[in-house]
């Protein structure tokens, strides 16, 4: 049967999980972007957004700057991106080569029930390129994502992959607690982030433990 249906988020996520680069740090947006990734590939090196719509990309940028030896992969939706389009400009200006951005383009605000976007058919890859990001393209097949993620080719600068996706409005139940503080502490412990030593103990600084 011939179908024009776009792939699902789950199909892209499976392609990503099967081809995840070693030591990758993954930052996921709110809603199913986080719930489904937790269900498919929970590790301490995932940072799940509970809410804060539109802030996944800037947080991932900061993480990429702080962890230049680790690949940082950010999963964001088209609706959330539209809330902070300026972040593309900042990412293009900083342009860290260890940052890969996966944009789920499903044309709706999925996490809030499927409301229509202001503009559901923007060429987001072209928008990223216009924002100073050299490597940006539209993909419509999970296999293409898998190939890109497993590629040994090291690009100079940020990589943006826009994934044409069917909306997924049924909420996925994550298998683990996504408690925000727990998520942060688990993540920072996993990457060996320096810990703050309180002034009472003669510190007042970050120190490697």
């Amino acid at each position: 049967m011939v179908t024009n249906a776009r792939p699902t988020r789950a199909e892209y996520y499976k392609a990503l999980a099967d081809n995840l680069p070693a030591q990758a740090l993954v930052v996921t947006s709110l809603g199913n972007a986080s719930y489904l990734w937790a269900a498919l590939h929970h590790t301490p090196e995932n940072f799940y957004f509970e809410d804060a719509m539109g802030l996944t990309l800037p947080l991932a940028l900061g993480l990429a700057v702080a962890q230049p030896k680790r690949r940082v992969i950010a999963m964001e939706g088209d609706g959330a991106l539209l809330m902070h389009l300026g972040s593309l400009v900042t990412i293009g200006a900083v342009n860290p080569s260890n940052l890969t951005i996966l944009l789920i383009q499903n044309g709706v605000h999925g996490a809030s029930g499927g409301q229509a976007l202001t503009n559901a058919t923007l060429d987001l890859a072209a928008l990223a390129r216009a924002s100073g990001i050299s490597h940006a393209e539209n993909l419509s097949q999970p296999d293409s994502l898998g190939e890109r993620m497993s590629s040994k080719l090291r690009r100079d600068g940020v990589d943006v992959l826009v994934l044409a996706t069917e909306p997924d409005l049924e909420v996925v139940r994550p298998p683990v607690s996504l408690d925000p503080v727990g998520t942060k502490q688990r993540f920072m412990a996993a990457i060996g982030a320096p810990r703050y030593v309180p002034t009472l103990f003669g510190g007042g600084m970050l120190a490697q433990t």
Partner: peptide
């Protein structure tokens, strides 16, 4: 949010 990401990364 960028600052949160930097701090998350240990800086």
């Amino acid at each position: 949010a960028i600052a949160c990401g930097v701090r998350l990364g240990g800086v």
